[in-house]
Amino acid sequence: MEIANIIFYAFIGITLISALFIMLTKNILYSAFALIATFLGMAGIFVLLGAEFVAITQILVYVGGILILIVFGIMLTNRGKTTKVDTKIYHKFYGILIATGFFYLLARGISTADFGGMAWMTNSNSSPSSIRHLGMKVMTDYVLVFEVIGILLLIALIGAIRIAGHTREEVEHVD
């Protein structure tokens, strides 16, 4: 067994276990932290799959951005409380049933489809990727999408500020 394979399975294990932990724990804060582990595990898998830039972005955006936001959200929505930030659980039976049922179907579909045996899979040349090549692609073929995504981010930013911030009347009221 190659060392890369061991690392690969280790990452898979980290991802899976932390994800399961998220599902099993009641504490939101714990699940947020477990999410970090999941993201990190996935980033590792991405690296092994030759998508270094995606992995880095994953860590930057998710761990550095979204998780911070989530933690802030947790803190903002539990102000003044000293107890654990537990979430209540419902739909337990149906939720698990649907999830496992769906997983069974997906797993059965994956195994039936047998992607690994397909021609284009086996014939593919897995040349190592280059971030430069990616950058060229983004700035040429996908430049429109890139710009749109930028605008989307801007709008989301403004929208988030507008929603979470004080309205004008509230501002005047505060003054």
């Binding site: 898979i12 991802t15 899976l16 994800a19 399961l20 998220i22 599902m23 939101i28 699940s31 947020a32 999410l35 999941t38 898998i45 989530i70 959200g73 947790i74 929505t77 979430t87 209540k88 659980i89 419902y90 739909h91 337990k92 149906y94 939720g95 698990i96 649907i98 999830a99 496992t100 769906f102 997983f103 997906l106 797993a107 994956i110």
Partner: peptide, 24 residues
């Protein structure tokens, strides 16, 4: 693994009452 993660996410979305947990 992707399917497992998706289903775990689905289970979390469906069962958690807290909105932030749902976001997770």
């Amino acid at each position: 693994l992707g399917a497992a993660l998706f289903c775990i996410g689905l289970a979390v979305v469906v069962t958690r009452k807290n909105a932030i947990a749902v976001l997770i």
